[in-house]
């Protein structure tokens, strides 16, 4: 006889676990879920807040920074334009995340459910990537302005073009390494969180080949 048929015979008989009563089940409804969707949700909220703070705190807390920034962007239109741009990007991400969370449904097929979760994770990933690129770019632009316009820096170092070139390279490499490290940290974070999901998703995909 087929092994599974033997198991089938026994399958419905087994009741190892104690049967729960209505009273046991009620409190379960109000407990907190610990699903990966919940975790992803918290991470995305943290992500949004973190990057908004990173980009606004220096401006509002340091007068020096504000005056410097105002000097760099002598034109108010540019500064306003940039602000509008970055806030609309954030708004777009919030909208996409919201839509994508809404589409996660536990009553879909397993494959569809996994795809919706992976899509949500991708949106968070792009948001982080966007922020990292912006941080990198603004640091590099800041460096360029500092070296070419700030008399303090150029006087102290008494810089010639070769020196400026070398310093720039070193700083850019440094920024790139920091950004890469943050990126790796994210990879690890999501990797751990979604390890099982990814494994099962690949297993399902393998079936379709």
């Amino acid at each position: 006889m087929d092994e599974l048929d033997l198991l089938k015979k026994d399958w419905n008989k087994q009741t190892e676990h104690k049967t729960l009563s209505v009273k046991d089940i009620y409190p379960m409804l109000h407990k907190k879920s610990s699903s990966i969707v919940k975790m992803l949700f918290y991470i995305s909220i943290a992500e949004l807040i973190f990057w908004i703070l990173i980009s606004t705190i220096p401006y509002y807390t340091s007068d020096e920074f504000r005056t410097k920034l105002d000097k760099v962007y002598t034109n108010d239109y540019i500064l306003n334009g940039l602000n509008i741009f970055s806030f609309s990007i954030i708004a777009v991400f919030i909208y996409l995340l919201y839509k994508s969370y809404k589409s996660i449904s536990v009553t879909d097929s397993a494959k569809k459910l996994m795809e919706s979760i992976l899509k949500t994770r991708k949106i968070i990933k792009y948001y982080v990537l966007y922020n990292l690129i912006m941080v990198g770019l603004s640091l590099i632009i800041g460096l360029y302005y500092g070296l070419s316009n700030d008399p303090k820096i150029s006087n102290i170092a008494n810089l010639n073009t070769a020196k400026i070139f070398i310093i720039s390279i070193v700083v850019i490499v440094f920024i790139a390494i920091v950004i890469l490290l943050i990126w790796l940290f994210y990879r690890l974070l999501y990797g751990l969180l979604l390890k099982r999901l990814n494994r099962n998703y690949n297993e399902l995909k393998k079936l379709e080949v």
Binding site: S35, M39, V106, T107, S109, A110, L113, L193, N200
Partner: peptide, 18 residues
Amino acid sequence: TWMYRVGLNTAITLYRKS
């Protein structure tokens, strides 16, 4: 039938082993 789906989806996708 509906329970099978939600149950399995939770077990293979949503559940994080505590």
